[in-house]
């Protein structure tokens, strides 16, 4: 029992540590990819190939002065970034990232590669993500600055609007898999279909839910406030949006939360639509490699999109969300429900 407990605690610690690291890796990746797209070098002075740049960034942020604007609500001003970061990390707790393992026979019973295994995991992620909105909204309100307030308001409106399409797009996957547990959804995607009886296609839900995947990804970008939907911090209009007044580690926490949220959305997308840790060529105990590869492919897509697409206009965002994405999500759900009910998926 105790060995299992220690192993499970180890998994939790490992998940936390890797999430922190992924934020640092993403900062470096964002800078390098941006530089590549804009045909320049990006960071290259700190360490080999600029690999130590994230550490330099963090040290710089730590030594900056912590400023608080006059008239800001002291308690909420400091609580907001903590809330943001906490929600971002907590959401990843129920994301499984590999098949059950005995750690090379060290353990008698296999343990699960996830910080927690909840049978309504998907709903828990949804619930915690919706808590993350408060961090941004409160930051906007408590800063006592018009740019922050507008950024916070926009963010609240945007996240509430896109949350509906987000939820509806994975509702279709829940119906296909018949489970709310991410582990069972991933396991339902093991195996292959054979196109024309020969060409093997992995049984990933992206192939039968392409529209659902598109909606999920679009809503995910809006939920994480990334470009082209980065209105809460649209710098031409709002200086920096909700985190205009933040500096030092408070700002770093918002930054961290944004990148961790990106990782979480990508990881959930991989678990829901891209077969999780299932993939060809690798044995099952190396499934986490597939998981990492897929997650980083999606993260690269995020960054690629940011440096390729211009920002929408705010009314366009709302119109797209309510008049196009939501009806498409409802239609996708209805058609999926019909197929599941009458043809017994």
């Amino acid at each position: 029992m105790t060995t299992e407990l220690i192993a499970q605690l180890g998994v939790i610690g490992f998940t936390f540590f890797m999430l922190l690291n992924s934020a640092a890796v993403l900062v470096y990746m964002e800078r390098k990819v941006a530089a590549f797209i804009q045909q320049r070098y990006g960071p290259y002075l700190v360490g080999p190939q600029g690999l130590l740049q994230p550490i330099a960034d963090i040290v710089k942020l730590m030594f900056k002065e912590e400023l608080r604007p006059k008239g800001a609500d002291k308690l909420l001003f400091y609580a907001a970034p903590i809330l943001s970061a906490t929600a971002a990390f907590a959401a990843f707790a129920v994301v499984p990232f590999g098949a059950d393992t005995t750690l090379f026979g060290l353990l008698d019973e296999p343990i699960r590669l996830a910080a927690a295994d909840v049978n309504v995991g998907l709903l828990v992620i949804f619930a915690i993500t919706s808590m993350g909105v408060y961090g941004i909204v409160l930051a906007g309100w408590s800063s006592n600055s018009k740019y922050s307030l507008l950024g916070g308001l926009r963010s609240a409106a945007q996240m509430v609007s896109y949350e509906i399409s987000y939820g509806l797009s994975f509702a279709a996957v829940i119906m296909l898999a018949g489970s709310l547990s991410l582990r069972e959804i991933v396991d339902a995607q093991a195996g292959y279909w054979h196109l024309f009886g020969v060409i093997p296609i992995p049984q990933w839900y992206i192939f039968i839910q392409p529209l659902g995947f598109f909606i999920f990804l679009t809503a995910g970008v809006a939920e994480t406030n990334r470009s082209p939907f980065d209105f809460p911090e649209a710098e031409q209009e709002l200086v920096a949006g909700y985190h205009t007044e933040y500096s030092s580690m408070s700002f770093a926490l918002f930054f961290l939360a944004e990148y961790v949220n990106m990782v979480t959305v990508s990881a959930v997308a991989v678990d829901l639509f891209l077969g999780g840790w299932h993939g060809p060529f690798l044995p099952e105990w190396l499934g986490w490699v597939w998981f990492l590869v897929k997650v980083f492919a999606l993260l690269f897509f995020y960054i690629w999109m940011r440096w390729t697409l211009p920002r929408y206009r705010y009314d366009q965002l709302m119109e797209f969300g309510w008049k196009w994405l939501l009806p498409a999500a409802v239609l996708n759900l209805l058609v999926s429900a019909f197929v599941v009910a009458y043809y017994g998926w």
Partner: peptide, 24 residues
Amino acid sequence: PFVAAIQIIIYAGAIMVLFLFVVM
């Protein structure tokens, strides 16, 4: 756990954001 998650999503997540929105 299902009711617990729904409680957070609907009340704490959706409705209270609207409350906060109106207050702001």
